[in-house]
């Protein structure tokens, strides 16, 4: 974690009849306890995953294709169900939520996808406003908050445009605006820069960092090493169904290995750093540098 987590004023949107538990604010926002998930019995994606995400953290989830990055995020969003283990979101076990409680969970989580998941025929405003309409907020409040969100992502005044006429970068900004408009406790970003050019990807990462600065916890799944090197942040490398936590980022890890080997970076590759970097499937200049 690179910066101290700001204390937000987030109160989870609850189902009617459920009381707000103030003690939840002191708990880690996400805890994975022995999480197993497999789509085929002989090929588990996650094998006893143990991970804790504190409130206000910005965490990169990385790893090769098929390592379970998207699965991990989808489990948190309850788009997938765990086979075994527990995922605690603000102290509540997501896996044990009843089906009617799932929408309430999702209202507290913003999700940004690689393919944007916008309705092309809707306007930018409608695409963002839907996240507030499901909360049943008055239209006046919806207008105000959508306007603020669009301004935050740099799309002020574009509310009337159809989503289909926007560029990829703009569409992803709309998706981000939709994710943050409900002021969620947690934002999950699943390869949000996968369809964008490198410069745009870095710009968009900056946007996520701005959102994080406002106190929102961000889980950012990517296999683009360039993004991991932009700033030293906590990285969780998923590989072979397990998570390897790198609190100071891959860059620090690389320096550590280089330091231990007396600056002979080429000798370290096969023994240590590559377990985290090269074999993790992350792409980019730094990964290439370590691998040689």
């Amino acid at each position: 974690m690179s910066s101290s987590p700001p204390q937000g004023t987030f109160r989870p949107a609850l189902r009617p009849g459920h009381r707000y538990d103030a003690s939840a604010a002191r708990r880690p926002i996400l805890v994975f306890e022995g999480v197993y998930k497999s789509y085929r019995a002989d090929q588990p994606v996650l094998r006893g995953l143990e991970l804790t995400i504190e409130r206000g953290e910005f965490v990169f989830i990385t790893g090769p294709s098929g390592s379970g990055k998207s699965t991990l995020l989808r489990l948190v969003h309850r788009t997938e169900q765990v086979d075994e283990g527990r995922i605690l979101f603000l102290g509540r076990d997501i896996a044990r939520l009843s089906v009617p409680s799932v929408p309430a969970l999702r209202r507290n989580i913003g999700f940004v996808f690689q393919d944007f998941k916008l309705v092309p025929s809707w306007t930018v405003f409608d695409n963002v406003a839907i996240a507030l309409e499901v909360l049943g907020l008055p239209s006046r409040v919806v207008r105000t908050r959508v306007g603020e969100s669009l301004e935050r992502v740099g799309l002020a005044g574009r509310g009337g445009d159809r989503a289909r006429v926007l560029s990829g970068g703009e569409q992803q900004r709309v998706a981000i605006a939709r994710a943050i408009v409900g002021d969620p406790a947690l934002i999950l970003a699943d390869e949000p820069t996968g369809n964008l050019d490198p410069q745009l990807a870095i710009d968009l990462l900056g946007l996520f960092e701005d959102i994080h600065e406002m106190g929102t916890t961000v889980l950012f799944a990517t296999h683009d090493r360039t993004l991991l090197d932009v700033r030293a942040r906590r990285v969780v490398v998923l590989d072979d169904g397990k998570a390897t936590d790198v609190p100071q980022g891959l860059g620090a890890l690389q320096e550590l290995f280089e330091g231990e080997s007396g600056g002979e970076g080429a000798d370290v590759q096969g023994e240590g750093a590559d377990e985290y970097v090269a074999d993790s499937g992350v792409r980019g200049p730094a990964a290439r540098q370590v691998v040689g």
Binding site: T79, P103, K117, V119, I130, A131, V134, R178
Partner: peptide, 16 residues
């Protein structure tokens, strides 16, 4: 299909 998917993703209930 996309609209329904988006609605479910942002936490819409089945009734909604």
């Amino acid at each position: 299909k996309i609209e329904v998917e988006v609605l479910k993703l942002v936490g819409a209930t089945d009734g909604f």
